[in-house]
Design a protein around this nucleic acid. Structure first.
Length: 246
DNA sequence: AAGGCTATCAACCGCACGAAA
DNA sequence: GTTTCGTGCGGTTGATAGCCT
């Protein structure tokens, strides 16, 4: 049962100092979407006043960024995305928002969750346990994919107004796929990467030649290393410049 | 069949930072 | 220079669903 429905039925949504907390209802989502449509993103603290939502600005921003944004990519993290996450995490550590910028349609929260569930624990796991877990994960992923396809189908039938968002998503997906075909991104195991992480990459790291992107990135990192004082902010903004072409 | 365990993910919290007043 | 406000980020929590024993 979706959160919104549950919240409605069970009367969830704690009210503290005038602000609602907990799971968002479908009604609240609608109000927030309408607010952003009219006023654009930002000024989140005005949402309560202007949209009639009893949510604080932070909560609204988070809901929009992590769940309602039309350019969000739904569904499982692909192996391609997984290798990007692994590689970027090896480089940047827990800078989730920076990593997220390299994955169009994915949020920092999503990547953070994915990392925690998939890699943090895998690192501790024995090989046989890891096999079991992998099978379980595979089954679970198949199940969820089926569920999501079903849900998408239902949404398409019920809500024609969402077609615009889906078109946006198709555009993003098209660009991603086009890019994948043009320059497959297969990260090379890095020296600073742990043995387990390298093992995880192993399945994908069959292509030995550097992709265009890798080449581009390696040059950037070399530049970074060379100049030394090129700070995190500079790196991030440089990355913003590059990512549209990756 | 039932209870415990685990994975997943939405949401919250606290902190930091920059801009405006 | 200081305070306030808005925003972003990373860490953590809690509810739920599915799997395992």
């Amino acid at each position: 049962m979706p959160w919104g429905v549950m919240a409605g039925h069970l009367g969830w949504g704690l009210i503290e100092e005038g602000w609602r907390k907990g799971p968002w209802t479908a009604e609240e989502d609608k109000l927030l979407i309408e607010y952003v449509r009219l006023h654009g993103e930002g000024r989140w603290n005005s949402v309560a006043r202007l949209a009639g939502l009893r949510r604080n600005g932070k909560s609204c921003r988070l809901r929009w960024v992590n769940y309602l944004r039309p350019d969000l990519k739904r569904g499982q993290i692909t192996p391609h995305e997984e290798s990007i996450i692994l590689d970027l995490h090896a480089r940047w550590g827990n800078r989730w928002s920076t990593i997220a910028r390299s994955l169009p349609g994915r949020t920092d929260n999503e990547i953070k969750n994915y990392w925690r569930t998939h890699f943090k624990k895998k690192a501790k796991m024995s090989p046989e346990n890891s096999d079991k877990a992998e099978n379980r994960l595979l089954k679970r992923q198949q199940f969820r994919q089926q569920q999501q396809q079903l849900q998408l189908l239902q949404q398409e039938q019920q809500q024609p107004q969402k077609q615009l968002n889906q078109l946006d998503m198709k555009k993003v997906m098209f660009l991603l796929e086009e890019n994948e075909h043009r320059a497959p991104y297969v990260p090379q195991p890095r020296q600073e990467m742990g043995a387990e992480e390298q093992g995880l990459l192993g399945g994908n790291a069959l292509v030995t030649e550097l992709s265009n992107e890798e080449f581009l990135w390696d040059n950037l990192w070399n530049l970074d290393d060379f100049h030394g004082n090129f700070g995190a902010a500079g790196k991030a903004s440089l990355h913003n410049l590059v990512s549209p072409f990756c």
